[in-house]
Amino acid sequence: MSPKSERPLSPHLQVYKPMLTMTMSIVHRLTGTILFFAIILLAWWLISAAAGPAYFDFVEDILVSIPGRLVLLGCTWALIHHALGGLKHLLWDTGHGYDLDMVEKLAKGSLILSVVLTIAVWAIAYGVR
């Protein structure tokens, strides 16, 4: 079969009405990709701690700057959202939670909980410092 043959293709994503469950699926991939790169920050922070106080202070200044904090806030949310999405997938792997009502609840729940937990983590971080 020639790859160039112009056969009609089945309708793709754009023909569907965007749904929360579909968006959460895309967001799970997106947050995974964000975390894939965000781990550079964790590695950089560890390297700076191993390198000594001068370099550590240099890195810390960047991380605690306003843009640095915004990036870290985004990473925190991505981490928590991906973790909750992962729990959802583990539940589905057991064969449970597939009725539409439940799927919708899980999508809404994980979104709301991820925001709440992100705020909680940052509130604790600000509280203990």
């Binding site: 560890l46 701690a49 000594g52 106080p53 550590f56 202070d57 810390e60 605690v64 983590v121 604790i124 971080a125 203990v128 410092r129």
Partner: peptide, 19 residues
């Protein structure tokens, strides 16, 4: 998270001591 939250804005000595 348990490790890093209290270390946000910590000094080098503090971070090294923990790790």
């Amino acid at each position: 998270l348990w490790l890093i939250i209290p270390l946000s804005g910590a000094s080098h000595a503090e971070v090294v001591h923990n790790i």
